[in-house]
Computed example of a mutant assay.
Amino acid sequence: MNIVLKSFLLLSFLIFYTSVNADTPQIKGLDKELKKPLIERYIMDELKDLRMETMRVRNDVDKRISKAEVEQTDRAARYITDTIGNIFYLIAAATSILLFAGWNSLRDIRGKTEEIVENRLDAITQKYNSQLQTLQDTLTLQSKKILENQNKIYNTQYLHSLWMRSNLETNPQSKIDLYDEIIKVNTNDAEVYAYKADAVLDLDEYEWALNLSNKAIEIDPDYGYAYWQRSCANAVLGNKNEAIEDLALAIEKSPQLRDEIEGEVLFENIKESEEFKNLKN
């Protein structure tokens, strides 16, 4: 502020002096010689004061900058000291926790770390093995189902071909052989036992036919054709009452068999009975 004020006063003086000098008549040469030293002296003094004031301001600024740098350095040093102290506190706390947990040495830490890792690996391995076993069991089950379905398809096709051949076969023994092949594939088919009994009756093997009919009825008590075959066997063997009863059951379970009664030659022994005539009508 002082520098600015002095500069302003010096500039004002020069302007005033110039204006006065321009308006006042001058004695040629005398005025110039008298005033020149005074002006130079005044200007030199003012410049000196201005330079000293500038130096003072510069020193003041340098002091403030130095003080700020010292304060900044001091804050940084305190921050570093506090940080290092906190780190040591954390290390001390961690050490205390480790000691409290029983980890008294690096060997203990290593041992416990290895134990934790091994336990974790064992758990992961067991989980993986369990999942792998489950997947393997699932795949095995699916494979079994696929094989079973393939076998069923094959057996169905094979049985169909055997039935087709038996229908085309005229020789009773050849039919029996085909029925035996069917029984090997499907032992719980009442139909094949009944048809085998029919072929056996053509060979005059009535007791055998009776047993086959009983097997068919045992498998499927509602299969009417099995009762028909047993009725035929009983009729030939002279078991008239059993033959009539089986014939009645056959017609009850399969009404379409009534139309076959008249053409069945094996009913010759029971045709004259009233019960037979009633069943026929």
Rank of each mutant, 00 (worst) to 15 (best):
L249Q: 06
F100N: 05
E71C: 02
N104H: 10
Q131N: 12
Y42P: 05
K35M: 09
A94L: 10
I146T: 02
L201Y: 04
P221M: 03
E148F: 01
D62L: 15
E115F: 00
R165E: 13
A76R: 10
F276Q: 04
A22R: 12
A243N: 11
E191C: 05
M55D: 07
Y128I: 09
N21E: 09
I183T: 01
E260S: 14
Q26N: 04
L147Q: 02
I251P: 15
L266T: 06
I91D: 04
K184E: 10
D49M: 11
N149D: 12
N171W: 00
A194V: 14
I116V: 13
E169H: 05
E181F: 11
V117M: 04
R56M: 14
E118N: 04
K28D: 07
A101E: 10
K184Y: 09
L34P: 00
K145M: 02
K184D: 11
D74R: 06
E115P: 00
I176G: 01
T95E: 01
V185M: 01
I251E: 06
N59S: 11
G29Q: 09
Y158M: 11
P255H: 08
A194C: 09
L257R: 10
F267A: 14
L249R: 02
W103M: 08
Y193M: 04
E191T: 13
G238H: 09
R75M: 06
N59M: 15
L247N: 04
K32S: 05
N21H: 13
N278F: 03
R258E: 12
E33N: 06
T138R: 04
T134K: 03
N281Y: 05
M55E: 08
N129G: 00
N167S: 14
E274G: 07
Q131F: 01
N269W: 00
P255D: 06
L178T: 12
K63R: 13
A123L: 10
V20R: 06
S174C: 02
L90S: 04
Y195L: 12
Y89F: 03
S161Y: 05
L121F: 05
I27H: 08
N86S: 08
Q133N: 09
K196L: 11
F267Q: 12
V20W: 05
A209G: 03
N239V: 03
Q256Y: 15
N59W: 13
S12C: 11
E169K: 08
D49F: 15
K145Q: 07
V200D: 08
A209Y: 04
Y128V: 07
K6C: 05
V57M: 10
T156N: 13
S19Q: 07
R51T: 13
R56A: 15
L14A: 14
Y128C: 06
A190R: 00
L38V: 14
I91Y: 04
R110A: 07
T125I: 02
L279V: 14
K240V: 11
